[in-house]
């Protein structure tokens, strides 16, 4: 069954994610990135950021809290075993630091029905506790039919 295009424009409730220092370290190690900005407390303190910062792509960790409800959306009804990640776009506006509280919102911005697959694009936007936009992303998922 094709994904109904009537869901273009659908939004999902905001989620506020608290960025933990140890979570940053766990993520950095998982992506085999041993940059001291993420892992070394002393280095981070002396850096221009003054604290442990998150790798830019950490945006997908707090972003995931808005992608999960899309995947679990009973109305949208994605056939998850047949879904693969097609494209990704990430824009970084502010550096994310350990201790930040990041609030993310999401919106379905496009749905395309093609012969052998459907495509759904979700836009996320994240702000920190100071109200500053930290990142934006567009996830494009492909559901094979």
């Amino acid at each position: 069954m094709s994904i109904d295009t009537k869901f273009i424009g659908k939004t999902y409730p905001a989620y506020t994610y608290e960025v933990g220092k140890e979570k940053i370290k766990e993520y950095a190690k998982a992506i085999k990135n041993f940059d001291p900005h993420y892992l070394d407390d002393d280095f981070a303190k002396k850096s221009k950021y003054g604290a442990i910062i998150a790798p830019p792509t950490f945006a997908v960790v707090f972003g995931a809290y808005l992608i999960e409800p899309v995947f679990n959306d009973k109305e949208l009804n994605l056939n998850m075993p047949m879904v693969v990640h097609g494209e990704q776009e990430l824009e970084f506006l502010e550096v994310v630091k350990a201790g930040d509280a990041i609030t993310t919102t999401a919106k379905i911005i496009d749905i395309k029905n093609k012969e052998k697959l459907d495509v759904v694009s979700v836009e996320i936007m994240s702000r920190n506790q100071h109200g500053k936009e930290v990142s934006r992303g567009i996830y494009t998922f492909v559901e094979r039919k």
Partner: peptide
């Protein structure tokens, strides 16, 4: 050398 310098990345898998 400075992770804060990267402003955008996009790709197709």
């Amino acid at each position: 050398g400075d992770p804060g310098k990267m402003k955008k990345i996009k790709c197709r898998f």
